[in-house]
């Protein structure tokens, strides 16, 4: 996909996403049972998480194996800040700010140290696993930040729910669903907008050819660091939503969480935004259904899905569907429509 394709598609896609979001907000809480509403809120938070890597990997060309580090940091930062401050609005800012700050520090060493892509993947994965081990070992009263006990492998079950600003009234599941919808749409629209800006195009230029971008005067390392930080902030937002849908636990840093988001992006389509979100929803629904059946471990199916997509649909869902749609809409060779098109050329 090229720059101009992004520009042309941007407005239409965002408008469609806005309509879908409004429809979901209006209809879904009225018809869905509470359990489904909470589950879909959870999927929405994962959708935001998928967008964070779709932006970083698909457009920045940075394969981060440890995106879950920022996801988990966002959730923990929110929970700890909310317990200590007693205010969830400020804590929400922490949920985005702390992962972004952490990414700025980590990214500085990664990008300014001119580490190759392979090392970047290894280091980000290692950082995630270190955090996973560290958080898991924080059981007992000694491990607390202010009033917040980290809770080891139990996590922080008493994570305060988001409250209405200034009133302190906790959000209901329907309110949380609405918030998750808005967050997913806003993140999608932000990413769409971002890739059409001068900054976004420069990031794509670096992805395409870092040396050429630098020879044209683009500061590749700074651009990579910037997109890394933005992506971490988005992952932190996803962590905040997840923390409000379930609760904060070390599994957020786990290897399976780090792998899941990679699978969503690959299956959805690298270099797309809608695809990874769609893949995230589809695979989570499938995993939940398989889990209910209890016939096979959902992770095995997830692995198979990844293999099938890598081998047979390497471009992912979104480009494959777009190609299929184009084939359907193109008149068959020899038909009057085709001849009219040929004549027009």
């Amino acid at each position: 996909m090229t720059l101009s394709t992004f520009c042309r598609a941007s407005g239409t896609h965002v408008a469609l996403a806005a309509v879908a979001m409004l429809a979901a907000i209006v209809i879904f809480p009225k018809v869905a049972p509470l359990y489904t509403l909470i589950n879909v809120t959870l999927y929405m938070s994962m959708g935001v998480f998928a967008l964070s890597l779709a932006l970083l990997w698909g457009y920045g060309g940075i394969l981060c194996f440890g995106q879950s580090a920022f996801f988990g940091l966002g959730a923990y930062a929110y929970a700890i800040a909310a317990i200590n401050f007693g205010d969830t609005t400020l804590a929400s800012a922490f949920a985005i700010g702390i992962p972004a700050l952490f990414a700025a520090g980590l990214g500085y060493f990664l990008f300014y140290g001119r580490l190759s892509d392979v090392y970047l993947g290894v280091i980000t994965l290692t950082v995630t696993l270190i955090l996973f081990k560290l958080i898991n070992s924080t059981g007992g009263d000694a491990w607390r930040i202010g009033e917040a006990r980290l809770g080891g492998f139990n996590g922080i079950p008493n994570t305060p729910l988001l409250t209405m600003p200034f009133t302190g009234i906790p959000l209901s599941p329907a309110n949380l669903f609405t918030l998750a919808c808005i967050a997913l749409f806003a993140t999608y629209a932000l990413c769409k907008r971002l890739i059409t800006t001068r900054f976004g195009r420069a990031v794509i230029a670096v992805r395409e050819n870092e040396v050429r971008a630098e020879l044209l005067g683009y500061n590749a390392r700074r651009l990579k660091l910037a997109i890394f930080v933005i992506s971490a902030g988005i992952a932190g937002l996803a962590g905040l939503l997840f923390a409000n849908s379930v609760f904060v636990s070390p599994t957020m840093f786990s290897l399976s969480m780090a792998a899941q988001v990679l699978i969503w992006v690959v299956v959805g389509g690298l270099g797309t935004l809608f695809g990874p979100v769609a893949a995230c929803f589809a695979l989570q629904i499938a995993a939940a259904a398989l889990g209910k059946l209890g016939l096979i471990d959902p992770n095995i199916v997830l692995g198979l899905v990844l293999v099938v997509f890598v081998v047979f649909v390497p471009g992912g869902i979104q480009p494959a569907l777009a190609a299929l749609l184009a084939r359907i809409l193109t008149p068959p060779r020899g038909s009057p429509g085709h001849m009219r098109e040929e004549a027009a050329r």
Binding site: M1, T2, L3, S4, I204, A205, E208, N209, V211, R212, A213, L215
Partner: peptide, 11 residues
């Protein structure tokens, strides 16, 4: 030639 291979001449 060191170019942005995935993009068009215009881009």
């Amino acid at each position: 030639p060191s170019l942005f291979d995935g993009l068009t001449t215009h881009e």
